[in-house]
Design a binder for these strands. Sequence first.
DNA 1: AGACTATATCAATATACATTGATATAATAA
DNA 2: TTATTATATCAATGTATATTGATATAGTCT
Lengths: 103, 103
Amino acid sequence: MPKVKCCSNKKISSDLKKTVDFLKIISEENRMRILCILKSGPKCVCEIWPNLDLLQNLVSHHLSVLKKFELIKSEKQGLKVYYELNHKILDKYLTNFNLVLSK
Amino acid sequence: MPKVKCCSNKKISSDLKKTVDFLKIISEENRMRILCILKSGPKCVCEIWPNLDLLQNLVSHHLSVLKKFELIKSEKQGLKVYYELNHKILDKYLTNFNLVLSK
DNA sequence: AGACTATATCAATATACATTGATATAATAA
DNA sequence: TTATTATATCAATGTATATTGATATAGTCT
């Protein structure tokens, strides 16, 4: 039985893994909401978390997960930390994802 | 502080939840591999599972998860069960996903 | 019928990770 | 300096779900 391409080809297999990692990060409702909230531009945590029914520290944690994966960037301004989408990385993963599932 | 659209709007919020459910299903390496394997056409379990480094019953389980979510369809032919992508549903979720994350 | 093949189900275990509560850090204001 | 605000970290707990091993079902062949 011949092996299927996506399982034996190293490049495809690696792309698939990266895509799955990306999907794991965004397949969490609160993180997805955060990304959606940030679509309208940079926001500080105090603007983000009242939109989510979560404790502040949990929002902070989800932000750190997103940031660790480089899906968002942050900038400190005084007491506040502003987060924004990292479109470059985000687009890279979205493109890769579409490649993996497309014909 | 005004609520952000994706958090207060019922329709957008519901789309987001559906998308997250979809992403949860496909953000698992083996399930993603199964979907990729099926891109080249319908296959029986005995053609699928040698491509994955998994026990047969686990492949069967992942197939059932994908099927429960209607991402794949199945047809019994004698002893064998053939699985294939359910492009209609798959495209629906992919479209929805792109809407949720697009500007 | 019995043996064999392909697939699915079930209970038990393992593992990953979301959530909570308490607290720390860091910047600003009084 | 002390108090306050904004954000982050940490340990403990809870929860969902992937994996395993054993076994069941269902179709086919002799």
